[in-house]
Design a protein around this nucleic acid. Sequence first.
DNA 1: GTGGTCTAGACCACC
DNA 2: GTGGTCTAGACCACG
Lengths: 123, 123, 123, 123
Amino acid sequence: MDILISNQSNQPIYEQIYHQIQRQILEGSLSAGTEMPSIRALAKDLQVSVITTKKAYELLTSEGYIETVKAKGSYVAQIDREFIKDKGLTEIKKKIKELVLEAKRYDIQPSEFLELVKKEVEE
Amino acid sequence: MDILISNQSNQPIYEQIYHQIQRQILEGSLSAGTEMPSIRALAKDLQVSVITTKKAYELLTSEGYIETVKAKGSYVAQIDREFIKDKGLTEIKKKIKELVLEAKRYDIQPSEFLELVKKEVEE
Amino acid sequence: MDILISNQSNQPIYEQIYHQIQRQILEGSLSAGTEMPSIRALAKDLQVSVITTKKAYELLTSEGYIETVKAKGSYVAQIDREFIKDKGLTEIKKKIKELVLEAKRYDIQPSEFLELVKKEVEE
Amino acid sequence: MDILISNQSNQPIYEQIYHQIQRQILEGSLSAGTEMPSIRALAKDLQVSVITTKKAYELLTSEGYIETVKAKGSYVAQIDREFIKDKGLTEIKKKIKELVLEAKRYDIQPSEFLELVKKEVEE
DNA sequence: GTGGTCTAGACCACC
DNA sequence: GTGGTCTAGACCACG
């Protein structure tokens, strides 16, 4: 597994694992049906507690990214891209709204905010 | 004080207080020199512990939004808008970066992200 | 009385009053026998509480700078300059010692410290 | 941990803890990466409240001397000696200024003050 | 009355 | 186990 963990980050380790696996599934580098490493193997690999990888897998399962077959293992699920993207759009739109508001409080006007985003995106 | 507390929120109460007061100062509805309610009075008003309001005031003090005089009270400080905006820019840029990354995870490409922001800003 | 009070200072107001009167007595601008303003008059003048000026006068009395005659008023005392200076020397030497130690912790060597003092003194 | 607490001192306990740990880090007896005792363990060791050690650690964190990882512990940070010295210089200069003023109050003139410092430094 | 400091508990998320 | 947050008390110096 291609996963990097940062102990300094404020982000919980299980979320870091979740996000990086989610990313690989969405990008297609992990395709449907692929067998995932076992919770224990991954924990050993990443030098984290089994509890932590278990939590990450539970999150991935509940969000529909992987499927777990008892006593066999976990497999990448067939994901519904439309559904995922829809959920993502709603989420991202909400966050953009919030960020625009926060920027205003710092006297950063929407037009200025848009410029910042353009700069970031063009890089 | 015009402050609303949510016990349900993941955000610590002292941060909620901090942000709402900060917003009122930045918006100008609390102007420099205005006397703030005492930490005890505010605690009673908001039905939270004195320590919680104290923490919020400490944050506001360390960020330069208010000034505290022992045995006297706290007062809205003369804020340096230039400085605040600079700090805000750094903060907002960081958050934009993070949001662009999050969007990518949902298969929302930067160009598409930019469109979402444009739509939001033009409203 | 020529006294300036700062509400923002961390120094208690009664100490500010004490130091400024002590200074004037040591400098000679207030000479022995001079009648001091009453506690109440001074409080009114400086816009502080009577308790505060009372505390300052008590300090000045206990340190021998003024003498209070019941129902008459307070008068600048005949000060023993030798004694005062001796006490001061002990105090200042102790503080220099501490400051040299603190400087060392910041990697500021004694020779460097001496230079800083020279610069300050020459101004 | 090599820390001595005085309940008699005017200095708050959390500052005493802060200063002693800061000193050990600056002196190098605590080197970067070293794990600090947990706030609870230290509190028990020093017989003070957890909140007191927490406050000391918060101060150390905000000043960049240690780094704290939630649910992991605190570690001595890689300190920037240049930065520390700069901050120290500002601090020491300020204190020299104050001390020169205090000396004047005791009729110790700047030139005499300089002599005292010389004597102290040459020892 | 004010803020500053401290105490002895408690629950939470995370590991 | 860890640190983060919160509570309900307390005493102090200052005004």
